[in-house]
Amino acid sequence: MILPIVAYGDPVLRREAKEITNEYPKLEELISNMWETMYNAHGVGLAAPQIGLPIRLFLVDTSPFADDEELSPEEQERLKDFKKVFINAEIGEENGTDWNFNEGCLSIPEIREDVKRKPEITISYQDENFNAHTETYDGLLARVIQHEYDHIQGILFTDKLSSLKKRLLKSRLDKISKGKINVDYKMRFPKIKKRR
């Protein structure tokens, strides 16, 4: 089932998400719905807060990047089959020199900006079967994971921009929260007045 994606301005996007256990109700169905929602919106990642749930769950499928000719053949190969569910994730380390990459977000449509992030991360998480993993990622994989991880920390990519850039984007962000944009996927806007 395709779920509406929560737009910029909704308080759920600002809350630090809570850990879950394997007792979480209908988790398998939720994960399936999240994949369907993400693919419908042409995303490469989706976090539970983006569908209104403040829980530490996100998923990533970087296969759309595998055709990017600016990437090395090795990086394309790594991205091609990378599809994972991350539950209760914690990033332990971020290493290397910050690098810029143009990011967007399904909750903030029509805005893309260069964001600085570390090129390598070590992350501990549980998969959909609650098996524990600790893995190190670099390059574009690390970046996509960091972006989704930020969502479960209550952080948006726009928070990482300069104060000047934030001021320049303020009116566009306000329009998004009021639903004054054209998107080709279902969204829930926090500032649309309910009709009585």
Results as ranks from 00 to 15, higher is better:
L3D: 02
V6N: 05
A7V: 03
L13H: 03
K18P: 00
E19H: 00
I20Y: 01
I20C: 03
T21Y: 11
T21E: 09
E28T: 06
E29Y: 01
L30Q: 02
M34E: 03
M34P: 00
W35L: 04
M38D: 12
A41T: 07
H42N: 14
L46Y: 08
A47E: 04
A48S: 03
I51C: 04
G52V: 11
L53Y: 09
L57S: 08
D61W: 01
D61P: 08
T62R: 12
A66K: 02
A66E: 06
D68R: 11
E69T: 13
E70H: 10
R78Y: 09
R78M: 12
L79Y: 06
K80W: 06
D81T: 15
D81N: 15
F82G: 09
N88M: 06
A89W: 01
E90N: 12
E90M: 08
I91M: 10
E93T: 13
E94C: 02
D98S: 10
E110T: 15
E110W: 10
I111E: 03
R112T: 15
E113W: 12
P119N: 09
T122C: 13
Q126H: 15
Q126Y: 15
F130K: 04
H133V: 10
T134S: 15
E135A: 09
T136N: 02
T136W: 00
G139I: 00
A142R: 03
R143Y: 03
R143N: 10
I145Q: 11
Q146H: 11
H151C: 11
G154T: 00
I155Y: 10
L161A: 09
S163D: 12
K165F: 03
K170M: 05
L173G: 00
K175C: 07
I176S: 02
S177E: 07
S177W: 07
K178N: 11
K178D: 05
N182A: 12
D184R: 01
D184I: 01
D184S: 09
R188H: 11
R188L: 14
R188E: 15
R188T: 13
K193F: 12
R196V: 01
